[in-house]
């Protein structure tokens, strides 16, 4: 997947939307984890996505550690529950606690540091081995604004992403370039996946924490929206 122009031109505000002013669409909730080496810009990407030039987020947050953001994808609303994970090596062993039951993961590397791509690959490998088998993984090369210092070519990363079945994007948290698309692509892929995988399977993986087993409680319920999902840009 190659870079695309930023899609943040959309002017839709986040928050509950209505179609035709009559029916409130129930948002589909997706747990998304951020992984990557320390200082690659994980928090910056998510803050750009959540705060950006959009309205202030009204949902509870914990700094950049936990954030939520709603996106409108055509006629569906997706609510990302974004979990930052501790990237320091000394906290590495704790990561599974964070990505447990995640439906999506954004693995970030710094295009100006080739070592960060290797670390990202290690994260991808770990996710593919230990995380929810249906997890949607996006590999994101950050700091696109620092082209002059680039150490990782777009082709190299894209090839790896293709081999590993990952979404791939290069973005800049600083300028906002392609940041919205990361989440748009993930949202569309999650919707596509929902057509192939029985809802029960997703629900099972989501309830493993034992924290909440209640049906219809706002957890991932991909049946709650209209039946057909159309690819499109994030309208968050």
């Amino acid at each position: 997947m190659s870079n695309r122009p930023s899609s943040r031109a959309s002017t839709e505000q986040n928050g509950p939307s209505s179609t035709g002013g009559a029916t409130t669409i129930k948002p589909v909730q997706v747990k998304l984890v951020l992984l990557g080496e320390a200082a690659v810009g994980k928090s910056s990407i998510v803050l750009r996505f959540v705060n950006g030039e959009f309205q202030d987020n009204k949902e509870p947050t914990i700094g950049a550690a936990f954030l939520t953001q709603k996106c409108k994808l055509d006629d569906k609303i997706i609510k990302f529950e974004i979990w930052d994970t501790a990237g320091q090596e000394r906290f590495h062993s704790l990561a599974p606690m964070y990505y447990r039951n995640a439906q999506a993961a954004v693995v970030v590397y710094d295009i100006t540091k080739s070592a960060s791509l290797e670390k990202a690959k290690a994260w991808v490998k770990e996710l593919q081995r230990q995380a929810n088998p249906n997890i949607v993984i996006a590999l994101v090369g950050n700091k696109l604004d620092l082209q002059a210092n680039r150490e990782v070519t777009s082709e190299e990363a894209e090839e790896y992403a293709k081999e590993s079945g990952l979404l791939f994007l290069e973005a800049s948290a600083k300028t906002g370039e392609s940041v919205g698309e990361i989440f748009t692509d993930i949202g569309n892929t999650v919707f596509d996946l929902a057509k192939k995988i029985p809802l029960e399977n997703l629900a099972q993986t989501r309830s493993r924490t034992g924290l909440n087993n209640q049906a219809g409680n706002g957890r991932v319920d991909l049946n709650s929206g209209p039946a057909e999902a159309q690819p499109g840009n994030c309208a968050c």
């Binding site: 909730q29 949902e59 509870p60 947050t61 936990f66 924290l211 909440n212 209640q214 409680n217």
Partner: peptide, 12 residues
């Protein structure tokens, strides 16, 4: 805890 609120930031 049972209720629906045990998600999101609570879980985090």
């Amino acid at each position: 805890k049972y209720s629906r609120h045990m998600e999101g930031v609570d879980e985090y």
